[in-house]
Design a protein around this nucleic acid. Structure first.
Lengths: 151, 151
DNA sequence: TATGACCTTCGAGTGCACTCCAGGCAAGCG
DNA sequence: CGCTTGCCTGGAGTGCACTCGAAGGTCATA
């Protein structure tokens, strides 16, 4: 991976993004930098470049800034968004629903209520899935102890 | 759904099944019955008839008994197996891996160790997924409280 | 100036887990 | 007897979430 030469970050960027950003950063990012190439983002997130471009095409990413030659330059805010999307994906949320949330974010403050609803419904799903997994865990433990005793 | 006329259950059935059956029954089953039609199993499990036949084709089900006219007759043991498979599916285990486990069960006692290993690795996956979901939950809670305060 | 690493787009292809369809058999009912 | 319902089979189709390929542009270094 080549770490590209970067211009100083545009402080005036007004790309719509989720106002409420996640405080804990899971991927180390070089300090004082705000313009990452796609291959850097691949390294940070574990997603493929193809998937990153595809997310953009389907409207799951806010518009990503470009270099003067047309190459993508991701901001820290974009990385935060990708972290969030990755978490939503882990809950089993369909991509279409995540796109819907992204649209609400783009539409601005007037969609706060709807966003809150969507997240609350997702929260309920997550709690259900956790309960199911605990249930499964107890079945697994039961069977494992059977095999452990049996031989 | 038609509740079919049933013969008394073959007590001599020796179909290979997981010796270690799950004690808690999640779907109500009529007492004293051991031969269910496919549509009864659909009602019990929530799976579709297509999916049940497909599970059999790919080797995920032990061989299901048939009526004299060739229709499937599921036993309580088959239902236990389906409950277990459904739980494994919830963990995100690929169908191919479940088929592998089913094969081990068919091969008999000599595969106890390998079955135990497989279940233990699944157990680790489940714990990981639970941790991921808790992580996601805290992000959701953070955002929800932001929206709740913000409007 | 040429090589190779990196990037671009758009459209097509892949793998998984179902899901459906066509064509047909068997049983119960008026 | 004919109608309806339920079930059978094998193979084809669907939807999702990527994943890849082709053709070509850009850029730093040899």
């Amino acid at each position: 991976m080549t770490v590209m030469q970067t211009k100083p970050a545009d402080t005036a960027r007004t790309a719509p993004a989720d106002i409420c950003s996640a405080p804990p950063r899971r991927h180390p990012r070089p300090d004082g930098q705000d313009r990452y190439t796609i291959s850097e983002v691949v390294a940070f997130t574990g997603l493929t470049a193809h998937t990153l471009r595809w997310y953009e095409r389907i409207g799951l990413m806010p518009h990503v800034d470009r270099s003067h030659t047309g190459q993508r330059r991701y901001s820290n805010r974009d990385l935060d968004w990708l972290d969030f999307v990755t978490k939503l994906r882990l809950t089993g949320m369909p991509v279409a629903d995540m796109v819907r949330y992204a649209e609400l974010v783009r539409e601005g403050e007037s969609t706060y209520a709807e966003r809150q609803e969507l997240l609350e419904s997702t929260r309920r799903d997550v709690l259900t899935r956790i309960a199911e997994l605990h249930d499964t865990l107890s079945v697994l433990d039961h069977k494992i102890s059977f095999y452990a005793a049996g031989k």
